[in-house]
């Protein structure tokens, strides 16, 4: 049991936190702009590398480099929207999906061109885990990631339910035509959607680098679990996406735990878990666990 918590549950929650932060953006963008944003993983990659540069140049720890990552990633997202998504706004959204597929490639090839394709780490050396009650050994980076995600979740909840901008976003996600009739400035709301989605993606990207390493496929590889998390939580429900991310992260780790003497699935198939969950959701509950907007 202790082993399960130390080596499966905590890493699962950590991984889930990363999925969650990415999935919030996917869910909000799907909710408000109505398309599956295929470049979201690569926004995470951009964030991770922007932080890496700050770590190298300024010699600061990765967590302190997060603001820098956020700025660069937000700029990338706003630029992509302005140059590649906005011109297609009046067309069927599937064209924007195709464009975002292209943006994913563009972002990644820029990262590869600028930073090369070798794996990098924010810092080298072994981190001693923190030990609680003599039994729970939790890596410091896991504590940081989980606590930060918890704080961001609370902040996001407050933002969406209390602030004018948050309510406007939910209104646009609910019914864009009515939002326009109510005089809401849709383009401004879309801009903020990108800023929030990209900022969280940047943070998630830095967390991936903190947890493992920084490489150019970092974000693309996470796209599938992030989509699954957004679907699980119900499209257009950012808090649902967080729950979805945690469920998928924990499920991926737990599936490799030898509950009955043998693991449920081979560890090498871990990333299939997200796909299985996604397929089950699409078959049985396309609106997601938390009743998102069904399309």
């Amino acid at each position: 049991m202790i082993d399960f918590i130390n080596f499966y549950l905590i890493p699962g929650i950590t991984l889930g936190s990363i999925y969650a932060l990415g999935a919030v953006g996917v869910s909000m963008i799907f909710g408000i702009l109505r398309f599956a944003h295929f470049a979201h993983g690569d926004l995470m990659t951009v964030g991770a590398y922007a932080a890496l540069t700050a770590v190298w140049v300024l010699g600061i720890p990765a967590l302190a480099a997060i603001p820098f990552a956020i700025i660069v990633t937000c700029l990338a997202a706003l630029l992509a929207d302005r140059l590649f998504y906005r011109p297609l706004r009046d067309l069927p959204t599937i064209y924007t999906v195709i464009a975002s597929f292209g943006v994913a490639l563009i972002l990644r090839s820029i990262v590869q061109t600028v930073w090369g394709t070798d794996s990098q780490v924010y810092m080298t050396g072994f981190q001693k885990p923190t030990i609680f009650f003599d039994t729970f050994r939790i890596a410091t980076r896991h504590i940081q990631i989980i606590l930060a995600t918890a704080a961001l979740t609370v902040a996001l909840h407050y933002f969406l339910s209390r602030t004018r901008l948050g309510k406007s976003m939910r209104a646009v996600a609910d019914d864009p035509d009515l939002a326009a009739v109510a005089g809401l400035d849709t383009e401004r709301i879309i801009r903020w959607t990108w800023i929030i989605g990209a900022a969280l993606a940047a943070i998630a990207g830095v967390f991936v680098g903190l947890d493992t390493d920084v490489h150019t496929n970092l974000g693309w590889n996470l796209l599938l679990p992030m989509f699954a998390a957004a679907l699980l939580g119900g499209i257009g429900k950012p808090l649902g996406a967080i729950a979805g991310g945690l469920i998928i992260g924990i499920a991926e780790e737990a599936c490799t735990y030898p509950f009955f003497g043998d693991t449920l699935i081979a560890p090498s198939y871990k990333s299939a878990v997200a796909f299985v969950i996604m397929v089950l959701i699409l078959i049985y509950r396309p609106q997601g666990l938390f009743r998102g907007r069904l399309m």
């Binding site: 599937i94 999906v97 599938l224 396309p286």
Partner: peptide, 19 residues
């Protein structure tokens, strides 16, 4: 489902096949 869901699922199927 809406085309976007097929898009997301098809990424998944490619990943499973690769695995």
């Amino acid at each position: 489902l809406k085309a976007d869901y097929l898009a997301m699922a098809s990424i998944g199927i490619a990943e499973i096949i690769r695995l």
